[in-house]
Amino acid sequence: MSIVVGYVPTAEGAAALDRAIIEAQRNQSRLVIINSSRGDALVDKRYVPAEDLAAVTERLEREGVEHLVLQPVRGHDAANEVLDAAEKYRADLIVIGLRKRTPVGKLIMGSTAQQILLEASCPVLAVKAGT
């Protein structure tokens, strides 16, 4: 049994992580944290630096959550990475953060959240920042 959370270093990402930790503690499940990058630009601010990731790991250990932190860089979209991980670790819950998007922005960029919601084979918990 495990919970997969898509983590990015933003308010939404932090909210998703917070919530995922609560869920993992409640269900005694393993938490799989995915922080992926397509790796197609020299700099990706959504890719968490090692020090910050260490802080996350430390926190998980403090809170006694069994965890696995993954940072795949394989040229795949974040949605695919989260879905892949959900399948591989037989997740019974996916937690994601949601952010506000303008309709135009969604049209051009597509929506990671939307793809996960539509394609996931397990329940998805969507969290907004500041909740």
């Binding site: 397509r38 197609d40 979209d77 051009i108």
Partner: peptide, 9 residues
């Protein structure tokens, strides 16, 4: 070839 898969865009 360089790895983008957003065909329409």
């Amino acid at each position: 070839a360089l790895g983008s898969r957003h065909y329409v865009r």
